[in-house]
Design a protein around this nucleic acid. Sequence first.
DNA 1: CGGTCGGTTGAGAAGTTTCAACGCCTGTGG
DNA 2: CCACAGGCGTTGAAACTTCTCAACCGACCG
Lengths: 251, 251
Amino acid sequence: MNEHPKSGQPVEIEGVVAQGKLQRLLDVLPEDLRSEMMPLWQSIRFSPGDVLIEDGEVADRIGFVTDGFLAMSKTLQDRHRHIIGLITPSDMFGRAFNGPSGYRIEALSDGAVLTCDRQKFEAIIARSHEAERLFLLSILDELDAAREWVMVLGSSKVVERLASLLIILSRHKYRTLEGTAHAPIQLNLHIHIKRVDIAHLLGTSPESLSRAFHQLERTGAIRIVTPYDVELANLERLIEISGNSLEMRDE
Amino acid sequence: MNEHPKSGQPVEIEGVVAQGKLQRLLDVLPEDLRSEMMPLWQSIRFSPGDVLIEDGEVADRIGFVTDGFLAMSKTLQDRHRHIIGLITPSDMFGRAFNGPSGYRIEALSDGAVLTCDRQKFEAIIARSHEAERLFLLSILDELDAAREWVMVLGSSKVVERLASLLIILSRHKYRTLEGTAHAPIQLNLHIHIKRVDIAHLLGTSPESLSRAFHQLERTGAIRIVTPYDVELANLERLIEISGNSLEMRDE
DNA sequence: CGGTCGGTTGAGAAGTTTCAACGCCTGTGG
DNA sequence: CCACAGGCGTTGAAACTTCTCAACCGACCG
């Protein structure tokens, strides 16, 4: 274990490297708080279907995704399932500073999280003004993401929503895309999420989703290598189909 | 009306009484900061179509709605307009602690806001740990609201989305509904928002929206007194139609 | 080899969009 | 004071998209 991780130096926990938001958070913590927090972290692997936090439960842990996809989901009385949002690597989950979870946190793919006792996490963050500010900013990012998602779901056609999703996922993967949108690059997305789950995320059925995928392929926007491996053959066209609702902004 | 944790003294600015979140924020501020902030507030009236903050603009003011409805909206290149969210009385707008606005803030009805210079607001909030914490909590609330809205837009049928909207609006208006959902109460909603705007909010067309309204009326869930004045005749049925996706939780 | 899971495809039913037209109300100018 | 235009909600009808149910297929597994 690293004794004195200086700012910018990768922090490693149980063989897993903390990235993105967690890394930045740790960078900002004063030395004493950081060394207090470090031993609290624990790496946990998950597989599709695992439930990390149940709907309505008061979570006793928070966590950061280091690999794979989690989802916030909700199953209604009529057995209808909605996926409210994806939680992708670097994102946090677990409602720090807040009440019970309004939805289930479940795994959509294989992956791993770094988790920490919620109350201890909160207590340490609250002792650093800088860390609390950083935390606030990350919530504001989440808010933006949620609102962007509202935009996406606002479009009535499934192809549009799917195109938007693919763009968003590609943005997550390659955070340095700005300006290159018009270059004839080819991006590969390996998304190990089942069609049903993507369908529930987009508010549609697996059948319609399948047709949308193949429609995108017919128009040349993407190439379906395997159901989990899509090549963004023509990003410009994909953006056009998505309705131009998304900026290719960086984080 | 809510209980005020500390001072409990309603604050009045230019004849407008600060409610909800703003009141609570002021209550939490230490005396010196509060008297510093008070003179910064200014009440402004708005009418439908007024643009308070333009898409992409770095807002120099933040504000709290005291009456009427604002919307976060975005107009795409293909002239398609989305409304991402409503901003209702007590809500804040204006991206404190954050970059440029990702959408336009426009008025959907007549109403009023209390506004304040953004930088000064931030500076004062940042000097009170309690206020900053409260601010963080209100962002978390917004996040919940945005995600609830994602749920709503996830349902494929327009009637369901409309039913959900009506329930949410009624919850905003009568914050003390829990437990009474089964009582045969009649709620009246006076919403001076044009059908086109509601349609854009629900991601549909005015025509479909109109049909949805009348379908709700036919099934006895609501009664349309005037297009802007709806009576929730059968809340239970409305909830059922909405797909039970919403809890009648309090704020 | 048979079963299950997940993706795809087909076909008819259901819901939505789109375009066009109508009616009501309001405000304006003759 | 009336006529008329424009805004807004509503209604109708046809084109389109999506949903639903059913069947099929390939991969994987016991």
